[in-house]
Amino acid sequence: MLDLDPGKYGAFLWPAFAISALVIGWMVVDSLLSARRWRKEVQRLEALRSDVRDASQP
């Protein structure tokens, strides 16, 4: 049976879980966004390089 009523300790218990969720959420979002950003940047630069190569060929 789920016990979601911590009584007088709720003022300490829920902030601990909320802060944990926030920090872990930040870790996940920051990691994924950073990976996505650099992957896109590599794709953009590689596309740019192949455009330049194509343009320089007679």
Partner: peptide, 27 residues
């Protein structure tokens, strides 16, 4: 497991960052 997964994602990000810096220098 969460750390392991995020660590791999962040190392991938670092590899792409270095590759992007190299490509930018070439350009």
């Amino acid at each position: 497991a969460l750390f392991g997964s995020l660590w791999m994602v962040r190392v991938r990000s670092e590899v792409w960052r270095k590759r992007a810096n190299g490509l930018a220098l070439q350009a």
